[in-house]
Design a protein around this nucleic acid. Structure first.
Lengths: 129, 129
DNA sequence: CTGTATCCCCGTAGATACTG
DNA sequence: CAGTATCTACGGGGATACAG
């Protein structure tokens, strides 16, 4: 363990952010919500994420106790993800973050334009959350 | 703009996390709180962060409208940082994150030991938050 | 005192092809 | 369907020295 990792263990917020602070985890929590979702459904709903990264993130979240992974030994295989109690407890906080962002949002027409452009270019029909 | 940045503009939570999702920003918000703090005070309170990175983060947070930077043209120079309304609105959410972490925290004695060890090794007396 | 200027490491995440 | 396996790129973050 090096100095740079110290924060992860030295304060509650540091620990919280290390479980939640990655690029995709909050999104994943919000997308799963109170349902069970299969891997493929997750991949479709968050279609700007690659399957490898999605897998990685799900594994870490499982380790951190945020989600439950149920594997059904069928053919074709089926895996369902759902939130643990800990993960569910995160939902209201994430909603508040959304509200916060919406309330203080500064509208940037250029960014919106860029966003539209790239979505067409990449043939992305529907985006996250 | 590339696909990977799409999330930043495609949903509120994405935008929120891009303003807040870095390693140090939530900590900085929590440390400034309702006071005005000088650069040096911040550096002492978050003493596991390098001055360069602290500067970088503060600049970005200023751009995102989270903090106010007041520069006094004195000798020696003095700079004071405080939260904007937007930054202040973040505080209750961060407190809830702390509570969340505290509630669902899994105690890991090994990590705690590692943490103590490195703090002595690096002569860190007091840590963040 | 409050930063810059460099230089560098390492981890996250992306693309693509392949597998049980 | 639900992943792995590789390889690669980028940039956040860190150490250290220097500057106004």
């Amino acid at each position: 363990m090096v100095k740079s990792e110290l924060m992860k263990y030295s304060c509650p917020l540091g620990k919280a952010m290390s479980a939640l602070g990655s690029k995709w985890k909050p999104i994943i929590v919000l997308v799963i919500k109170d349902r069970k979702l299969r891997f493929g459904e997750l991949a479709v709903r968050i279609n700007v994420i690659s399957r490898k990264v999605l897998t990685d993130q799900l594994r870490e979240m499982q380790t951190d106790g945020l989600i439950i992974r149920e594997e059904f030994k069928e053919l074709p295989p089926r895996v369902e993800y759902s939130l643990t109690e800990k993960g569910l407890a995160l939902l209201p906080i994430l909603y508040q973050l959304e509200e916060w962002e919406t309330k203080y949002h500064v509208y940037d027409p250029q960014k919106e334009k860029d966003c539209k452009m790239i979505m067409e270019e990449k043939k992305i029909k529907k985006t996250v959350v």
